[in-house]
Simulated assay, not measured.
Amino acid sequence: MATARWNGEIIAESDDTRIVEGNHYFPIESVSSQYLKPSETTTVCSWKGTASYYTLHVDGKDNPDAAWYYPDPKPEAAQIKDHVAFWKGVDVTG
């Protein structure tokens, strides 16, 4: 089972992640939505499409843009639609 932790809390947990470019993409339903705050940040990947971000908010602390997802991925990345990945100090094991 893959687990994402930050600031002492489990943010996501799933035994059905998709690994793309070394990152675990967690199904959105396995992510604790109370820790996610929408961000205005977007980036573009040439083969996955445009990524949107969340700021993690846990126990009064923010980790800006520490989670990302592709709301409308290109066909080559269709397997990560409705999935979220983490970085910026989020400990992902599994």
Rank of each mutant, 00 (worst) to 15 (best):
M1F: 06
M1C: 11
A2R: 10
A2G: 09
A4I: 03
A4L: 05
R5C: 02
W6A: 09
W6Q: 07
W6P: 02
N7I: 05
N7A: 14
N7F: 00
G8S: 03
E9P: 04
A12I: 06
E13N: 09
E13I: 07
S14F: 11
S14T: 13
S14L: 12
D15M: 03
D15N: 14
D15L: 08
D16T: 14
D16N: 15
D16S: 14
T17A: 05
R18L: 06
R18D: 04
R18G: 01
V20K: 14
G22H: 10
N23P: 03
N23V: 07
Y25Q: 08
P27M: 11
P27I: 10
E29P: 01
E29R: 13
E29M: 09
V31R: 09
S32F: 02
S32A: 15
S33R: 14
S33Q: 13
Q34L: 08
Q34G: 00
Q34S: 11
Y35I: 04
Y35S: 00
L36V: 05
K37G: 00
K37R: 15
S39C: 04
T41E: 08
T42Q: 13
T43C: 07
T43W: 01
V44I: 12
C45S: 15
C45W: 11
S46N: 12
W47M: 12
G49P: 01
G49S: 11
G49L: 01
G49I: 05
T50S: 12
T50W: 05
T50N: 12
S52K: 15
S52R: 13
Y54E: 06
Y54D: 00
T55E: 05
T55N: 12
L56N: 03
L56H: 02
H57W: 00
V58I: 14
V58C: 01
G60V: 06
G60D: 13
D62H: 11
N63S: 14
N63H: 01
P64I: 09
D65W: 04
D65L: 09
A66R: 01
A66W: 06
A66Y: 05
A67F: 03
W68F: 10
W68N: 03
W68D: 01
Y70T: 09
Y70D: 11
P71V: 06
E76Q: 13
E76W: 06
A78K: 14
A78V: 09
Q79Y: 13
I80G: 01
K81E: 14
V84W: 03
V84D: 04
V84Q: 01
A85G: 10
F86D: 07
F86Q: 07
F86P: 03
W87N: 08
W87A: 06
W87F: 15
W87V: 08
G89M: 12
V92H: 00
V92T: 11
V92S: 06
G94L: 10
G94K: 07
